[in-house]
Nucleic acid binder design. Structure first.
Lengths: 224, 224
DNA sequence: GACTTCATTTTTGTTTACAATTTTCAAAAT
DNA sequence: ATTTTGAAAATTGTAAACAAAAATGAAGTC
């Protein structure tokens, strides 16, 4: 019995397109035509169309009949909206993680953060926030909530959208030590199994990021 | 210049299918084949397939290659997960609504609730929760948050899933007066522009509903 | 010179036919 | 009787041809 694979062309095309959009290889707001995709990926038009429809269902692209599809692009207001949603959901994730994460999972997370601390010292605090480390931290807590729907909504939808803007947002973030301290306090709350505190801290953490974006935008350092 | 419509067959089929699934006309867990749909709706297979792919992207159906598609069906655990997500999101919605709802919107909501109060008196408290009134109340507060992404996630995804189970969940809910009092207190918090309190009350309100479901399930009164 | 009009061209929507996979069911072997 | 095997049937995946709508651009008019 060999692995049935059963991943169809449309499946593969869907994943390729999704990662391409999420990683920014296809920039936000760009029009994408079926003909271009055919030439670029080599798949037939049918599978491509099916992949596009799934992306439409996920809200990553917007289509207009007979006109074409384009990658979504967020206004600042929409980005702020996204951060409010994230604050609510990740706060809840932290609360549940404090209840449901295994002790060894928390220990792992602790070790992860300690390695981040070393990186900060060595690299003079360069860009802690913009590294994958930040995503690792948040991702582990989200998984730790053991709430599949919550994980799905955060990692499957919001983060894909947020990643579109991650590069631009992180270039100026410039608060690595602060973020690190906030992460550390959240872990302490998890260790003490204090869900309420973990939620409060996580919400403050994300709220601070949002306010930083708002401030930079008002000052014209951030253009969308 | 007549309305260009530009709603394609696939668009119409998508909406028809979505409402059919959400309203329970196609029960949860049921297999749906493209041939059946062709015969039932009269559209070609292409448009149907595109609609199915969009539904897949929305998470309302699950497809397996060469095997078919079936409407999602939730386990109790998944239903509980959904309520936790709802608690987080609607809590945030209430907080923002306290800030952003116009005073006359709050007044309207108040009148709505008063008419519900009359209904409860007249009908001996029958099934306040299971009526559209409950949805109206929550929907207005969600809209009142003025957060488009939040509204979209709640009304566009979660509620469609929850509605699948609304009928079964409401049959035994039996806490109309309690729910009404909770609604009333939330409105009071909105009037006082106390976002923190509004969030707290909304979260308790939804948490109570979740606990009621958990209890009924443990007692075997609820089968999924 | 700017605007409108209309035909051309491009792009997407739809249908049809075909290929590939899974499922089903019956017959045969253990 | 249960399991296994194989071919037939049903269903989905893919490709190609066709239809329809929208974008483009040039010609004509004001």
């Amino acid at each position: 019995m060999k692995s049935p694979d059963s991943r169809t062309q449309a499946d593969i095309a869907f994943e390729l397109l999704q990662t391409a959009i999420v990683k920014g290889e296809i920039p936000a707001g760009q029009k994408i035509s079926e003909a271009d995709l055919m030439q670029k990926f080599g798949y037939g038009r049918g599978p491509l169309r099916e992949a596009l429809h799934r992306l439409e269902g996920r809200g990553l692209i917007i289509r207009k009949a007979h006109s074409g599809a384009k990658v979504v692009s967020l206004s600042v207001e929409e980005l702020i909206d996204l951060y409010e949603v994230r604050e609510a959901l990740e706060g809840m994730a932290a609360r549940q993680a404090a209840r449901r994460m295994h002790t060894d999972e928390i220990d792992d997370l602790k070790r992860l953060l300690e390695s981040h601390a070393r990186q900060i010292e060595e690299e003079q605090g360069i860009a802690y926030c913009q590294r994958e480390g930040d995503f690792d931290f948040h991702f582990r807590i989200i998984s730790g909530s053991k709430n599949q729907k919550l994980s799905q909504m955060l990692t499957g939808e919001l983060y894909h959208l947020l990643r579109l803007y991650r590069y631009r947002l992180s270039t100026f973030s410039g608060r690595p030590e602060k973020a690190f301290r906030e992460h550390w306090r959240i872990i302490e709350a998890l260790e003490e199994r204090d869900g309420e505190l973990a939620e409060l801290l996580m919400r403050r953490h994300i709220s601070a990021a949002r306010q930083s974006i708002e401030k930079r935008y008002r000052e014209g350092q951030l253009k969308l």
